[in-house]
Design a protein around this nucleic acid. Structure first.
Lengths: 214, 214
DNA sequence: CCGCTATAAAATGTATACATTTTTAACAGA
DNA sequence: TCTGTTAAAAATGTATACATTTTATAGCGG
């Protein structure tokens, strides 16, 4: 596993305090490598929204921003149904079957950890989206998803949205099987909108609490 | 001006042949710097779509891809009207006046060169978009615009879309002045759609010609 | 003549050392 | 005590040197 993945995993687990600056030397020593690969990883993570960079003043872990989350979900709300509608004509029985397998795999006992659930959840979506054969649109959607991950990990810790999400996913598959593309896209849009609302709401509460603590 | 800007400018001017791989050493020698800043610039340009990277196999200038252009315009078509609708309530007379100034500045005699026109055109749009106060959404739209630049330079060389574009821009301002937000967003959507269609059409022709040449 | 392997060449990835910029802290003066 | 200046410390940016991986080439066998 390369340094980029390691750093991202640590960021995802909230190992670095939001707002605190990351120093290349410390990271290099911590991970036992030179500063060059650290710089590469930081640049990439910065471009993906995991870090904010103020030019030559180093990089820092961005604080959770309700407005950012709102924008991310707003964009996903507009782009993902579009991508699904483009994919719909190519969604044959085999692809839908695989998607269902993933959903089934998520309902094991004991329940899987948040990280694995997140991965499977995204695999479910990408399995459908890839069928559209639109790499550029797909890449942008994937980038938005990556940026959302930072908040989603947070959400999984605080809320239990799994059951609702699962139910909607099964509904989505059923609609796609029946060829009800428009309804499926509409459901997806509302699904993302609802998830976004819950997340943003929660972020605002949390942020208010932080402010009170000052 | 840093290396990133230099390289991007040269890419924009079509100085490197599409499909040809770029070697760090050659670039380093060419620009009179070490390979380290070259690597940084390449990574950034790769993340912005100016270059494609196949892992450790180096980077190359991507060929013009009609499907990529289509996706980019499709996304802009969905996101930019959204951003404009969010900005509309904050668009006071001063902001609209500045936008108009930019449009007027574009109609000088003799006509400006394509690069300057492109810059002014984007300034016009960002002036409106920024008013929304949605940095994240804005950043993504800006990124899409940056990716389109690669194709737009091409378009400016081949077609003269200036007059049509200008007319639609003035119409847009008029609608915004009258508070007809919904109509303005609709016009913007159709404006982007039309521009995308023309570009994609032209790319497909051009690509067909290339294939014939083989 | 074609295809496979092994070796050499070249390109990228990484570490160390140095230069430049930014930040921090001390300090003098008001 | 506060403020502005300045010098030292620390962080980032860059160059050089080395290691690893990839690609091209020469040679061998079919």
């Amino acid at each position: 596993m390369d340094l980029y993945s390691q750093l991202k995993a640590d960021l995802q687990r909230g190992r670095f305090a939001p707002g605190s600056p990351l120093k290349q030397s410390e990271l290099a020593e911590h991970y036992g490598v030179s500063r060059i690969p650290v710089r590469d990883a930081l640049a990439r993570l910065k471009s993906e929204g995991w870090l904010t960079g103020h030019g030559k003043r180093g990089v820092a872990v961005p604080r959770f921003d309700p407005l950012e989350a709102e924008d991310l979900y707003l964009m996903r709300m507009h782009l993902e149904p579009l991508l699904l509608s483009l994919a719909a004509p190519s969604l044959n029985g085999e692809l839908l079957g695989r998607a269902q397998d993933i959903l089934d795999a998520m309902e094991t006992t004991p329940p899987l950890d948040a990280a694995t659930l997140g991965q499977l959840n995204w695999q479910f979506h990408t399995g459908l989206y890839r069928a559209a054969g639109r790499p550029t649109l797909f890449k942008t959607v994937e980038q938005l998803q990556r940026q959302c991950e930072r908040y989603i990990g947070y959400q999984n810790r605080s809320l239990d949205y799994q059951s609702t999400s699962q139910r909607e996913h099964y509904q989505l598959l059923a609609l796609l099987r029946q060829g009800e593309t428009r309804e499926a896209c509409s459901l997806l849009e509302q699904h993302i909108a609802a998830a976004g609302r819950v997340l943003v709401e929660h972020l605002k509460e949390q942020q208010g609490a932080d402010v009170d603590m000052k």
